[in-house]
Structures are given as structure tokens and as C-alpha cells.
Design a binder for these strands. Structure first.
Lengths: 152, 152
DNA sequence: TCCATACAGTTGAAAGTTCAACCATGTAGG
DNA sequence: CCTACATGGTTGAACTTTCAACTGTATGGA
């Protein structure tokens, strides 16, 4: 079957989306690297832990919510542990399991990094869009997530 | 000044956007890695070269249009050259310069990979959105690009 | 002409991610 | 009970990206 290439309008949307992703996440990574000495992925791990009861989560659950592979998370938590921001503890109910817990030091680092990061996100994305556009963005993104999750 | 945290609606949009990016680009990278044995970044390099007169471009210009650092591009082109998909040639008018040229083999690889990739992009993004949503996405993405480009 | 500086591009090391292989523990079926 | 399989998590190697340092070439004044 013949390939259905993208129309001009489709190309415009797709390339703009590609470009916005690249420049935005490059910029966010640089901001976090500069101000908090960590990549965005690690920041998200700390955020998720901080939002959980006891600031503790099973490794596999943490991998799921941060959308990362077990392997990636394992390596990442190893680095975070070296810095003293997270500790790993055996799980009481499943001897295979490990819990990752955010330490006080890790929480302090996150608390110090968060305001600057939120300001950056506002400056680059949120404040430049209308409430309608934010709503549109949410719907579009949720549609994409649903498609990717179903088809693969 | 007090941090202006994100409202619920803002959080929804922001997190959905983060999630869609991660799952989408993970999926695209896996598709290209599986079907064409290259990451999305390399695919874009080949695409840009293929669209240029003579399938040739200065390294620095190629870095600009692919939104990558000189260093990244240099490493990437080195890998592509090892595979015989690209060659580097001295620039006639500027002895500092290098031209990257897409080889016939590289063009053939791209031609083989493109239909599957476009189908994947359609399946995950384009076909799931209405024309209005594509237009909205383009506008939103262009706004983000403008913001990031100006503020940093 | 000479100098300082900017530009083009590469390099190697450090950091992050992926992939496949692996160990250990849990669980379901015969 | 015991076997087979699934789950939870880690590891090391290969690969990509980043960062800073570096080479070589162009350019704009004094």
C-alpha cells in the first residue's frame, strides 16, 4: 500500500511539535543541571517520592510512575543514593522488593530546586499560553498517550 | 517573591505534555531502532540531508537545523560515516569547513525507513487528532519555541 | 603586517540510557 | 511437593549525549 505522506498542514504541526520538544527539554535540562545539578529525569524521581506517603515507593512502582524502565530507574537511584538524596531499603512484605525513600537531604534539595524549576516551566510554557490552549494541549497530549499505549 | 505553583488545570496540561513526550519519543525511538537500526536523531540528520540540494550541508548548518550541538552532530556523523551512509568532505570556500553528504547507500536506507516511520507517526499522533487539533498543536508548539528562544 | 578574537569542527572523558542476561523470590498447576 | 513460569530488581556492556578543552582557519582592527 502506498505511503500516506504528511500533508503540508500535518508536516507543519509535526515539525513544530518536534522542535518545541527538543528546544524545551534541552532548556529544562540545562536549567536543572545548572541550578540543581541533576537532569530532569532525576528531578521527577524526587518529585514522585516527595508526593508519596512516607516519601517511599517500591522500585517497580516508581519506575511505572516516572515512565522509565526498571534498568534506568535502578541506575538512576544508584546515583541518587551516592549523593545521599535517596536510600534503598528492603521491602518487608516481599523479599524480592526494594523501597526507595527520599531522605531529608533529598527533600531539601528538591525544595530548593522546585521554585526555580516551576518559574522556568511557567516562562517557557504555561504563562505564554491561554487557558484554552492549555486545555487543548492537555487533550492532545492525552490522546497521544492513549494511542501510544494501545498500539504498542 | 512567593513561588507561583501550578494550578490544577496547569498541572494537568503540564503533566500530560510531559507524559506524551516521554511515551511518544520512546516509542518512536524503539520503532526506528527496530526497523532501521538508528535513533530518531540520526534519522533526522538523514532527512535533512536528503532534502537539500546535492544532499550536502555544512556541518554547522546541519547542527542548526537538527537542533543539535556541534559536538553531538560531530559524533553522530562519525557513526553515520562508519556505516557508509554519510561522507565528510572538505569545504571548497572555507578551509575550516566540512560538508556532510548523504551517500546513495544512506539515501537508500532512508527511503526504506521512511514509510514505516511515517505510518508510526500517523498512528500515534496525526490520525488520532482532528485538523483543528493539529492546528492548535502547531500554534502551541510555535509559541513554546518562540518563548524558549527568546528567554534563554 | 600583526594581533586579538571569533568561528568551524573535533576529541576524550564523564554521565545517562538501553539492551540483554542474570539472580532471587513469589505463585499457580499438576 | 515440585516444577514451571512470572515478577522484582540489578548488572555490565554498548551506545548516545554533554561538557570542556583543543586545533586550525578566518576576520577586523591597530
Amino acid at each position: 500500500m502506498a505511503t500516506r505522506w504528511l500533508s503540508a498542514a500535518e508536516q507543519r504541526a509535526w515539525r513544530a511539535y518536534l522542535e518545541s520538544n527538543k528546544v524545551l527539554f534541552d532548556a529544562l535540562d540545562r536549567q536543572l543541571q545548572r541550578d540543581a545539578d541533576m537532569p530532569h529525569t532525576y528531578y521527577e524521581i524526587l518529585v514522585r517520592l516527595s508526593e508519596t506517603e512516607g516519601r517511599t515507593m517500591r522500585m517497580s512502582e516508581l519506575a511505572t510512575v516516572t515512565l522509565s524502565s526498571r534498568s534506568r530507574l535502578s541506575h538512576a537511584v544508584a546515583r541518587l543514593e551516592e549523593r545521599g538524596w535517596v536510600v534503598r531499603e528492603d521491602c518487608a512484605t516481599d523479599r524480592r522488593g526494594q523501597n526507595a525513600r527520599l531522605t531529608e537531604a533529598g527533600f531539601a534539595v528538591l525544595a530548593a530546586a522546585a521554585p526555580g524549576h516551576v518559574e522556568t516551566v511557567r516562562g517557557y510554557v504555561i504563562d505564554g499560553l491561554t487557558p484554552e490552549q492549555l486545555e487543548q494541549l492537555a487533550e492532545i497530549a492525552e490522546t497521544i498517550v492513549a494511542k501510544v499505549s494501545n498500539e504498542s
